[in-house]
């Protein structure tokens, strides 16, 4: 299995800092905006960004987790069903700006499911998408991110492995499946 490191802890730090600055540019003091991390792997990034924004802005910012399992379009089309995770939306979505956060944007199908899942809680004013890794040229749906950590050009057969634990050993790898 061939692995290539895309981001290490140091680079990730710089990238998250930049993403936070871009978010502050676009959303000001976040009084109208909430952050929504996508389960299961987007929530660590959402936590990191949320923590950094609260430190920088010295204010409370709404944070939620969204599980898309029951809204997926591949139910009964996969070999094994996806396990559901907790959804926590402890704020009113109606008429708020929402920044959806996920680790990797690939086909766009999870984001489509997330939009459906989110609308079950109300009608947001505006929704934007932030991803750490944007796998270019691999979309199945017309979905593009608004804030991007890093663009990578990948083959369909490759995989992006994100090891985000919030600690010091964060690594994002590009893996060649065929080399297994």
């Amino acid at each position: 299995m061939q692995k290539k490191l895309i981001l290490d802890t140091h680079l990730l730090h710089i990238t998250v800092d930049r993403l936070c600055q871009q978010l502050i540019e676009a959303h000001g003091d976040f009084s109208e905006t909430a952050i929504l991390g996508m389960q299961p792997r987007g929530i660590h990034l959402a936590d990191m960004i949320h923590q950094k924004l609260e430190e920088d802005l010295k204010t409370k910012i709404d944070l939620g987790y969204l599980d898309t399992t029951f809204y997926r379009d591949d139910f009964r089309r996969r070999d094994t069903p996806v396990k559901a995770n907790a959804t926590k939306v402890p704020f009113i979505i109606e008429n708020r700006n929402v920044v959806l956060i996920d680790d990797v944007l690939f086909t766009g199908r999870s984001v489509r499911a997330a939009l459906d899942a989110m609308i079950a809680f109300g009608r947001p004013k505006k929704v934007e998408l932030l991803v750490l890794v944007n796998r270019k040229y691999s979309r199945h749906l017309p979905i593009e991110p608004d804030f991007i950590g890093k663009d990578v050009t990948t083959l369909e057969s490759q995989r992006v492995l994100v090891e985000l634990e919030g600690g010091k050993h964060n690594k994002i790898w590009l893996i060649n499946k065929e080399e297994k």
Binding site: F70, Y71, A84, A86
Partner: peptide, 19 residues
């Protein structure tokens, strides 16, 4: 475990999922 997540679902404003 799955029932726990569905219990959340049926306590939301929109109690339905398209699964």
């Amino acid at each position: 475990e799955t029932a726990k997540t569905f219990k959340d679902v049926i306590n939301r404003p929109i109690k339905k999922v398209p699964s």
